[in-house]
Each structure stands twice: as C-alpha cells, then as structure tokens.
Amino acid sequence: MKFTINTLKEEIIMSHNSQAISTFMGSSVLSHSKGEVNPFWIIVKKEIADHIRSWRFGILVIIIGLTCLGSLYVSLQNIADALQKSKVDDAFAFLKLYTVSDGKMPPYFVFLSFLGPLLGISLGFDAINSEYSRGTISRILSQPIPRDFLITAKFTASLIIISMMFLLLSFLVMGIGIISIGIAPTVEEFTRVLLFTIASIVYVSFWLSLSILLSIKFEQASTSALSGISIWLFFTVFYSILVNVVFSIIIPAGRKLSISGIQTKLAILRITPNQLFTDITNVLLSPQVRSLGPLSMEQMEGAIPTPLPVFQSLLLVWPQFVGLIAGTILCFFFSYLLFMRKDVKTLM
C-alpha cells in the first residue's frame, strides 16, 4: 500500500512539475533545496491532519469500524453452518467471513454500500466553501502556488484517508479471521479481498468528488451537505422504487418481463453508484456468481458449477468498475473546472 501511495505521489508531483515547467519555465518549482517540501504535500498533510482531528470523521470511523466488527462477529458465529451447507467443495472458506450473515444483521459490504457514501460526503461537503466562509481562500490563493493545488490536494488528502481506513479494516478482518477460524486466505482470496477494498475506495471517492463538487457549487456548507445527503438518499432508497413503479406501469399486469425487458431494467438500475458497487462486491466476494443478468437454460446447460477464477470475476464486473471510476473522474473534472473559473471575489 505504501508503494501505491508512493507511486501516486510521484505521479502527481511529476504531473505538477511538468505543468509547472511549461507554464512557468521551470522556475522555483523544480528547486529542491534542503528541507523544502513541495507545497502540494504541505496542503495534503494539513488536510489529513484536519480530517483526523475533526469530530465528524471520528464519529464515522467509529460507526464504520463498529459495523465492520459487528458483521465480523456475526459471520464468525455462522461460518460453521454456512460451510457445512455450501455444496461447492469450498476453496473459498475465508471469503465467507466477508459475506456470511445470520439474516438479521447484513454483512459488512452491504453496510458499506450505504455508509460509504456518508463517509465520502462528510469528508468533502465543506472542502471549498469553508475556505470561503472562513476568509482563508484569498490568503491561501495569494501564496505562490498554482490554484489547482488546493482542490487537488484536498481530494488527495481525503483519498489517502479513505484508502488507509478501508485497507486497515479489510486487513483487520483478515487478521481476526485467521486467528479465530484458523484458515489462512489463499492468494486468490487475498486478491479478491484486495480488489473488494479497492472497489470500496473507488465507490467512496465517487461520493467524495461529488460532495467536493457540491461544496464549490453551494456557498453554505449546510446546503451542500444536505444536497449531498439527498442525492445519496435518492439513489439508495427512491431510485429503485421509482424504476419499479415505472416498469409496473409500462408492463401490463400479469405479463412477465421479456429477457430484453429485464436487461433494460437492470441497465437502468445500474445508473446508481450503489448498484454498481453491489454488483462488484457480489461478484468479487462470491466466486460462484457467473452472471449479473438473466441466464437462459441453453447458456446454463453443460456448465460445471465451479467458482470463477479471480480474473474472470474481475472481467465480469469490469464495466461496473470503469463506470464508478468514470463517475469519480467526471465529478472531479467538473469540480476542477468550476473551481478554476470561480472568482475569488464571490465572498460569502
């Protein structure tokens, strides 16, 4: 993980340097005298410190940590039953830790699909507008740093925090799992857990960049937080209800949906990031899932009920993965555009 952060670091520094070279003829940005840190990382450091010291981050960490440990406890209680019941001779006992539940308490990844957005929103909803309302924006922007440092550094800082937190939780579950059930994860399982963790990071970053966008758009932190939460509510609760209602109106009563109808419906449902995330986690954490859409009898015929290798699973959800990443980048792109064009004058 340190490696990923380091490469990320290098990439960003490099991109900024090359930009700086072209814009400012490589003046002082390249000068690395002793003890001098690129201001970009100074901002990142400060933002991380701010988040970690803040109450709201503490509360969310506690909530997510508790649900994680709670689901782990439930799955540890039920894992023996689940292993007995499963027909496939299970090479994936360890993954059950992440998915098994007793039916009363949902497993960890389901919790994550609706708590994750909250974490993302809480990290980003006042990213820019708080700088305006505190009157720090003009002071910071009058320092010799490119303007985009501020927004990129804020995004990077939150991304680092999210990555740390999810990697930590995943490995914590893994560690406790190894100790309590005595089975070590295989390479395949480890890869799947890692991919699942990366998916959660991408999912939360989508909400993070959406909320940063809102924080630029809305002058009041409360407006931006509320609109973020309402978008989240709409997608988690109302969107699927709405789609179902519309389909029940279009399709006459008593008739079943055709295959193409089902596929259209699924495609429409997959506009929501939650659906994409659920798809990804389902496929990654349950190797026996072979398709996310309807399968015909012909397709099933002759299929051997073996689990998919990790690469095939990844291939199955690759569109969803790309969709989530694209959503994140799109939101960030618009935030970037909006912020670079925003006049410092619009004091709030």
């Binding site: 701010d50 009058s142 010799p144 740093i145 490119p146």
Partner: peptide, 22 residues
Amino acid sequence: MNPIKVKECVGYLPEDVGFYDK
C-alpha cells in the same frame, strides 16, 4: 501571465482576513 512569480514577491492581506480556527 505569471501570477506565481508575482505572488512570490507580493504579500497580500485581504479584507477581513481569516485563519484556520483550529
């Protein structure tokens, strides 16, 4: 054209200056 160079040698105290409260 060269705001960074300008900002390197100019100190600006905005109206109603703000600091990070915490």
